[in-house]
Design a binder for these strands. Structure first.
Lengths: 202, 202, 202, 202
DNA sequence: CATGAATGAGTGTTCATTCAT
DNA sequence: CATGAATGAACACTCATTCAT
């Protein structure tokens, strides 16, 4: 049925855009991978660029929604950051192609679509910023460069999409925990029992 | 003179490949940015792809040579990793366009050129691996996932090329030190006075 | 009901073919202007070209029938030409889109449809030729180039469809009379009291 | 040489646009008729539409220049109109394809190019208007609808491009004179000895 | 050195039309 | 009746590259 075909187009685009880049992917390849003619492709997408924008927005919106839910559910900054890191890592490990597209193909968007995508990304990152800032405020984190640390950690976690393979020996959960661990260290928190011990120290 | 013109071509390519991607850059743009005709362009490059491969190889070879020199000069794993991280961060901050090209455009190379570039990158990363392994061997680092940590740190430092601006308030040296700090924390070493001090602490 | 829809399609086609030309009008535009899907369009027309041919034939047949009636009703060549000119001008002023299509889009028809349309147009023009020839025969007109004059007058009157607007200050009837006037002058007849004076002269 | 090739492209475009319309002509046909590949075509034109605009502007500018020269040279309105009509008719008889393109393809231009072409056409027509108005002012013409007459005459003369063939029995000079004759009659002037005789009649 | 001219192959997209539902 | 889905062919145009001058 229709949804199925639309899904096939989407999956083909995700696969090819991630593998060869947006500009490196022709619509004839896209059509072949989808099992359609190039003309039929245009029943399921506005334009090649619309397709790209859709993929990026969907991916970012899902991530943003999940992060917002985490921030609403977890008050304590330390477990909140832990959850945010794990969410980010899991998403990048499970959807490496989508997330790589988000990270690598923003330059391929025309200004208006780019603004939308960047706004979504900024919203998402502000959930991180807020968590870090709250941790600093409550004395749970000790870092004199919270902004730099936040962006450095984000880049580290983005990298997961570029190298992690579920076929390797490392389980996804171990991967997520490892990154959460590094994040807490980078932010100057003790991994298991942080806020308490640190607030005492001050 | 000739060298000058060749340099202009190289600089134009670096600028455009970084900004719009290899496939997103046409040779007409390249020619315009270089101030040449498209035909003249071909006096200074083999093909568009050769130009890309040259840029990537030069960048990686410079980095590899510097890293090799660091490894030869610094024996102690802790300062060696510190130096490697700083080198990596400085290079990515000073040459963000070249390093972004290295990180993002490997898929645009044909298999044979890709093999060369990947080999260079692997050589470079093995300098890191060796430093981390040596630190673990000597008890300077405590991490049960040295490989994961290494690649996570590399991704974090690569990210510098994507966001750092020398026009911001953060100095390049502070940036480098901050990342070195995080690296040592992630590897389970105390930043300034590492192996010894930490083993005593337990 | 069906007739209504068919009418909407016809009106849409007339509007668009006149405004943008046959080849400049896509069936998607046609469908949108008709308020139908492109597929539904094909219930009300054979093909895009059939639709064009229908429009042209209907317009020409109406004109031919009216002209034939005029010729049958009015014997005297001078008032006959006057009536023919007025008919032509009125038709082009009232149906500027249809008549412009007839005048401009013959090249878009395939040979067989073109033959039909050209035959209709020739039949119509022969009513004019006959009236002019009769006037010359009876001494009502003085022109040594009756054929050229006839075609020049036709072109002049066709032009009405290209510039006349009922929203202007000139009434349709004044317009028709003005053109009839010019026609009689061009044919060498006195506008009001021609045949008599001239027949006396011979 | 280059000019030759550019000329071949121009001539091919004129031929095809006149015969099949702008939208009815593909660039592949254009290339074939020019004896070039479609890619080479783009060395000699900006875009298909630019080519159209160039053709129209060149044609109109030539006509405008000639008409301006006539107006400057001939003061008396009667011979001035005669010369203008003859110029118009000769141009339309000798360059029927170019003039038909000017008359039929304005709708194919994008707004900005259309404005340019329409401005040229208006300039040209204002030379006619001025001549007619001057004749009316000096009492050389008697018409209570000078504007309508002017446009009707223009349309009549435009028509020449649609039907006149130099292979017919009518010479170009006779054709021009015939139309000038009709024009004077339509404007209410005596063909050979106008202003004087008529002013006496009043 | 430098470039105007040239091109085969390819770009993303739209065309008019059909047909199963 | 009406239409969503589908398509082969064509659309205008650009690609990276070559070569004679």
């Amino acid at each position: 049925m229709a949804l199925d075909t639309a899904g096939r187009v989407r999956r083909a685009a995700v696969k090819l855009f991630a593998a060869k880049g947006f500009h490196g992917t022709g619509i004839r390849e896209l059509a072949q991978e989808s099992g359609l003619s190039t003309a039929s492709l245009y029943h399921y997408m506005g334009s090649k660029e619309d397709l790209l924008a859709d993929i990026m927005c969907d991916c970012l919106r899902t991530l943003l929604d999940a992060a917002t839910a985490v921030a609403a559910r977890v008050d304590d900054p330390v477990p909140r950051v832990v959850e945010l890191v794990k969410l980010h890592v899991r998403t990048h490990a499970r959807k490496p192609k989508e997330t790589r597209i988000v990270d690598h193909e923003i330059h391929a968007l025309a200004p208006s679509a780019r603004r939308t995508v960047v706004a979504l990304r900024d919203s998402y990152e502000s959930v991180w910023s807020e968590a870090v800032a709250e941790g600093v405020r409550r004395g749970a984190f000790r870092t004199n460069q919270p902004g730099v640390t936040r962006i450095a950690l984000l880049e580290m976690c983005n990298g997961v999409a570029r190298w992690y393979s579920p076929r390797g020996s490392l389980s996804l959960e171990d991967l997520a925990e490892h990154h959460a661990d590094v994040a807490l260290k980078a932010l100057g928190a003790c991994p298991h029992g942080p806020a308490e011990g640190q607030s005492r120290g001050e």
